[in-house]
Design a protein around this nucleic acid. Structure first.
Length: 793
DNA sequence: TAATGTTTTCTTTTT
DNA sequence: GAAAACATTA
């Protein structure tokens, strides 16, 4: 049994752990047993409080490592927590359950796979795989993909699961919904048959496991006397329900929690409602758990007050808030600089100039400067401006390692070794590299497998003729590989696979193949470091703590991985595949370099920089046009802006542009309404401030500001540029008649080719062209009506 | 079946 | 403007 230690009422500040904490942080760290909500503002030392709390619990004997469960959203956050804890504690952190929601669910399901109705080596489908599985299903059942787009269906299924709904639980009002439910049902059956689970299933299945097994639930409830949740504002309905299962039971219609739940979050930084996050969970938690302790961390250790004042003022325009104000003891610092550019190119060029200035005169480091934007499409111009200026930069986002096509192909082969029933993996590589198995053959195979009620793999023998021979060769290849690699270590398995499948050989013949081959080599390294990694796949292992006197953790027995709770083992290959699915990996491009950081505002959450640029502060972009018309979504945009602002320590730059290329068309945008919500005293306008959004809106004669007619006009395309309320905005130069001021000998700048010198001019009107010599790219004839040339002085 | 041309779509995203 | 999905030809 796991007796609960009584906690003292008064905190003792004597411990060296607690020396540098402010009073609120100290109170949070030393809270007595019971549920608590910590409202932790941006830059208020949230992670510090969480980790110190755990360390304090252990150090003072209030908890054993085995009774602690800490859950985060990202692998990065989980890793950081483990790293900080290891630094704080003399004992290793083995016995604790620290991980992402999905990582912990995976661990539960592996440990209790029988009770959960899963094969022990179940594979995990990522979003891509899930979509592929839905597509395959739709094809097989002749679903009209006009009426039911696979994407929508995948979305529908994920949504249902997030709400904890199985097909039987969903209400089908109309025939459309009923059809979707039917497909959901079929999808479930397909996954079960193939032994695969998607991300939603990982959550839902382990929720049901706890819900339906009283003794299991009781075991974990007793065990985890201390549950800590990071970024609580981002939890969705199912994750909250999952936490409730772990923490307690409904007794006589009232929820009674067993251990102590400490939830840390910030409603003002809730920016994931669009993917199901429910800020309302915070209020529900307080109510349902009868939370007695609520602590606000409002002391900010990051930014100067001009920046914080801006953030506070902006967020005060949101109506649904728990209420919190950041404060700092640092001085006002530099004002927030605002710049209006004529075009997205000019905006990017201005950013580069300012960045150079920061690097040169103000002693900023490259990596301490970030350029943030609302959507990924905005990065391109900024990238090219930085590139041409020779400033090193790193773009976050985009394809990550385990999502790359060549890696997914390799993983699919590995998955087939583990589980031949995995039709998604089968379909992915059956004809890759090409081996004469086309769409027709696969159709025949699918019908055969369906008729026999078996997997594609097992259905191959039923396919006659040439197609059957080709398919048979593929199956023989995989079977042969399985036999060859039996008993080998992970590295050799992968090397052998790359060899036998001729994946590397295939990419040798492709023109872009070199990078892919490099990535495949990298896969071997990834596997190698996974194996040698201390602890060997944190997510899958739970070794007993302290049996070795707190020394380095014992090496897991090879070849299997043992879960201490159940004694179940998992092969290194299966563990690696799980690792690949749950941790998509960094986009390692240019990693480690000291470079300017480019990323979306979403990606910047949790990070901080000395200097921050937020570009594209325009109506239609930020707030995004799809979000501006409804209160809830507009408020999420505002929180997004709040997150962006609070990333900055010392310098903050906001910019917007009159024109911008979007979807291949020039759009004429006006300044974001968010500028009108910032305190004038904290701003410095580098370009003259012009009429505001609100003034423009009321100019249209529509009465109240944001009327629907005014709203629809924002973010319009070029056709409407000279009509209505925008007639007084500067009209952009018409095509073909640029006041270019070009002549032979003049230095110019081109976004793609960089700086060059004009050699000659020729033609007129739309045909006018210039011959320009570029250092890097030689001489080129450029149509002035098309090419983006600017004069350099 | 495989390679090549044509049309379509286009926030934010971790697991 | 560009990737990805789709249709068409050798």
């Amino acid at each position: 049994m796991f007796p609960q230690d009584p906690l003292p009422d008064a905190p003792s500040a004597a411990s060296p752990l607690l020396v540098h904490l402010n009073p609120e942080q100290l109170a949070a760290v030393t809270l007595p047993a019971g549920h608590a909500l910590i409202l932790a503002g941006a830059g208020s030392g949230k992670t510090r409080v969480l980790t110190t709390r755990i360390a304090w619990l252990l150090q003072n004997g209030h908890a054993r490592p085995g009774s602690i469960l800490a859950v985060t959203f990202t692998n990065k956050a989980a890793k950081e927590m483990v790293a900080r804890l290891s630094a704080m504690l003399p004992v290793h952190v083995r016995g604790m359950w620290i991980g992402t929601f999905h990582g912990l669910c995976n661990r539960l399901l592996r440990a209790h796979h029988q009770a959960a109705g899963l094969p022990q080596t179940f594979q995990i489908l990522d979003t891509q795989d899930q979509l592929a599985a839905v597509k395959r299903l739709c094809k097989q059942h002749n679903v009209d993909d006009e009426r039911f787009a696979p994407k929508d269906l995948a979305h529908f299924i994920a949504n249902c699961k997030e709400q904890g709904l199985r097909p039987n639980d969903v209400q089908g009002q109309d025939s459309n919904t009923r059809k979707k439910i039917e497909i959901y049902q079929l999808y479930e059956e397909q996954c079960q048959r193939e032994g695969v689970v998607d991300f939603g299933e990982l959550m839902l299945r382990s929720y049901e496991l706890l819900r339906d097994n009283d003794h299991l639930r009781a075991h974990y409830q007793r065990r985890f006397a201390h549950i800590l949740v990071d970024e609580f504002q981002d939890t969705n309905q199912l994750q909250y329900a999952w936490l409730k299962q772990l923490a307690g039971n409904v007794v006589d219609g009232r929820y009674q929690a067993h251990g102590s739940v400490l939830a840390v979050g910030d409603d003002d930084q809730s920016i994931y409602a669009f993917r199901g996050a429910r800020v309302g969970n915070m209020a529900d938690f307080v109510r349902e758990f009868g939370v007695q302790q609520q602590i606000k961390l409002e002391q900010n250790y990051r930014s100067y007050s001009h920046i914080l004042d801006s953030a506070n003022a902006l967020i005060s325009h949101n109506s649904s808030r728990l209420g919190k104000n950041l404060r700092t003891t640092q001085g006002p610092g530099e004002p927030v600089r605002v710049y209006e550019a004529s075009s997205d190119l000019a905006e990017a060029q201005w950013m580069v100039d300012e960045i150079k200035q920061l690097l040169r005169s103000d002693g900023f480091e490259h990596r301490e400067i970030a350029v943030l934007y609302r959507s990924n499409a905005q990065s391109r111009v900024i990238e090219s401006a930085l590139f041409n200026a020779g400033v090193p930069y790193r773009v976050y986002g985009g394809l990550r390692f385990f999502e790359r096509a060549e890696i997914k192909h390799a993983l699919a082969y590995l998955r087939l070794l583990e589980n031949p029933q995995d039709d998604t993996s089968f379909a992915r590589v059956v004809n890759f590299p090409p081996r004469g198995i086309g769409a027709r053959s696969i159709e025949v195979l699918q019908d055969a497998a369906r008729a026999a009620g078996c997997s594609l793999y097992d259905g191959v023998s039923a396919v006659p003729g040439k197609a059957g021979i080709n398919l048979g060769a593929f199956v023989a290849l995989v079977d042969g590989l399985r036999a060859q690699t039996r008993g080998l270590n992970l590295r050799s398995i992968i090397e052998q696979m790359l060899e036998s499948t001729r994946l590397v050989a295939h990419f040798c013949t492709e023109k872009e193949g070199a990078d892919r081959i490099e990535n495949l080599q990298e896969l071997i390294n990834a596997a190698e470091s996974f194996v040698t990694q201390e602890g060997f796949g944190r997510d899958a292992v739970a070794l007993p703590l302290d049996e070795h006197g707190g020394a380095a953790p014992p090496k897991p027995p090879m070849p299997g991985i043992v879960d201490a709770d159940t004694g179940e083992t998992l092969s290194p290959l299966a563990a690696f595949l799980t690792h690949a699915a749950l941790e998509a990996g960094d986009n390692q491009a240019q990693a480690g370099q000291n470079a300017v950081q480019l990323m979306t505002v979403h990606a910047s959450k949790g990070l901080e920089f000395d200097g921050v640029f937020i570009g594209g502060m325009e109506e239609g972009l930020f707030p995004h046009e799809n979000a501006a018309s409804e209160r809830d979504t507009l408020e999420e945009e505002r929180r997004l802006m709040y997150v962006a602002i609070t990333r900055a320590r010392r310098r903050l730059y906001l910019s917007h542009s009159q024109t911008r290329m979007l979807h291949g068309q020039t759009r004429y945008n006006i300044r974001s309404r968010f500028f009108d919500e910032l305190p004038e005293a904290a701003l410095k306008w580098l370009t003259p401030k012009r009429q505001s959004f609100a003034a423009l809106a009321s100019h249209s004669g529509a009465g109240s500001a944001y009327s629907s007619s005014a709203r629809q006009s924002f973010g319009f395309k070029s056709a409407g540029a000279e009509s209505g309320v925008f007639a007084h905005l500067p009209v952009p130069p018409r095509k073909g008649a640029p006041a270019h001021g070009l002549a032979a000998g003049i230095a110019v700048f081109h976004t793609k080719f960089g700086e060059g010198k004009v050699l000659a001019l020729e033609g007129s009107g739309t045909d006018e062209r210039a011959q320009v010599h570029f250092a890097r790219h030689g001489s080129k004839w450029l149509l002035l009506s098309v090419a983006k040339l600017t004069v350099v002085d």
